[in-house]
Amino acid sequence: MDRGLGLADIMRELRLNRHTVRKFMRASSVDEILIHGPSGRTGVLDAHADYVARRWDEGCTRAHILHAELADRGVHVSLRTVQRLLHRMRECGAPAPQSLAPKPRQVSALILTPPDLLPEPDRALLKELGTRCPDLAHLQALVEEFAEMLVHRQGDEKLDGWLNSAKLSGIPELRHFADGLSRDVEAVRAGLTMPWSSGVVEGHVNRIKMLKRQMFDRAGHRLLRHRILLA
């Protein structure tokens, strides 16, 4: 309409039928299209229109994610209903989100990368994510503390305190990790304190396993022994 196109031109360009285009042209606001269904009656999502619009602005444009979030809020609605709502939002020209939320793998990479090696945009993004999600900021702090303990061999001094903080963090994955370390805490403490490492032994073990896989069902132990010794 802003370009001076008529009804027929809009139908042809947007590939919509006459009834849909006329309905959009007569609507006084976007909410009039979003809240009311094709029949003009209010739907089950009317009371949650503000939440849906806010999540759209935050980058949540996938129906299955929004459907799961609504279910957590106690809204019993079908996935198809959510898909129709998002389709109407796109048809009526709802502004596209400025930026999509980063993927879990991307956030993990940001947290696990040493802060000094992060470019400035990534540092800003990580700071913003921590501001929006306190649990993520807490997780980042614990990961950095563990990395410092690992690099500087401070397990004898800080391991017990770190395990307690991890178990009380309220983050299930971190709590499970801490429980696993606690089952063999003395070995973990030694690994985070002493300068010796079993890395060389593990390397030889992996090399022998590789040779065994290469010779599987092709030769006996005698040839395997020769290959290991000669290598």
Rank of each mutant, 00 (worst) to 15 (best):
P121K: 03
A124R: 10
V143F: 02
L136H: 10
D135C: 09
Q140N: 14
D122L: 08
L125F: 04
E128C: 09
P134E: 02
Q140W: 05
P121S: 04
C133G: 03
A137V: 02
E144P: 01
I111E: 02
Q140F: 01
T131K: 13
Q140S: 12
L142P: 00
D135N: 15
C133T: 14
G130M: 07
L139H: 13
C133Q: 11
K127A: 14
F146V: 03
L126A: 01
L136F: 07
E128P: 04
D135R: 15
E128W: 11
A137N: 04
E128R: 15
P119M: 05
D135W: 09
P134G: 08
L129V: 05
P114G: 09
I111R: 02
P121D: 02
T113R: 02
L126V: 00
D122H: 15
I111N: 01
F146W: 04
H138I: 05
L126G: 00
G130C: 14
D135E: 15
I111W: 01
E120N: 07
H138E: 06
A141R: 06
A141C: 06
H138A: 11
P119G: 06
L125E: 05
L139K: 11
D122I: 07
L125I: 06
I111A: 04
E120I: 14
T113W: 02
P119S: 10
L118Y: 11
